[in-house]
C-alpha cells in the first residue's frame, strides 16, 4: 500500500503525517508512507485544499487532519 500525505509543510500537514504513521503502526500493515511537499506536484494532483491524503493514488481526505480512528477505517478499506 502506498500512502501519500500532500502538503507544503504546515502544522496540519505534519499532524496528518504523524496520525498516518500511528494508524499504520496500530494496524500492523505494510505501507510506504510518502510526504509530498512539492507545490507543482500537489497542483498537478488536483488538490485544492491541503493537507490531503492519497492511498494508492486515490484521494481520500482533503483540507483537514483526519484522526487515527478515521485513518484506520480508510486504510482497512
Amino acid at each position: 500500500m502506498k500512502i501519500e500525505v500532500l502538503g507544503t509543510g504546515c502544522m496540519k500537514c505534519k499532524r496528518l503525517l504523524k496520525n498516518v504513521e500511528v494508524a499504520v503502526q496500530e494496524l500492523g500493515i505494510a505501507a510506504e508512507i510518502k510526504k509530498v511537499d512539492d507545490i507543482t506536484e500537489i497542483i498537478n494532483r488536483g488538490v485544492m485544499l491541503t493537507p490531503a491524503l492519497a492511498v494508492d493514488g486515490e484521494m481520500k481526505v482533503s483540507g483537514r487532519v483526519a484522526d487515527v480512528k478515521e485513518l484506520k477505517e480508510i486504510l482497512k478499506g
Binding site: C10, K12, I39
Partner: peptide, 20 residues
C-alpha cells in the same frame, strides 16, 4: 493554468470538511 491549492491552516470552519 491550475490555481494554487489553499492551505487549511488556521480557522477550518470555513473550508470544506473542516470542523469547528
Amino acid at each position: 493554468m491550475a490555481s494554487k491549492p489553499e492551505c487549511a491552516c488556521g480557522d477550518t470552519s470555513a473550508v470544506a470538511g473542516g470542523k469547528k
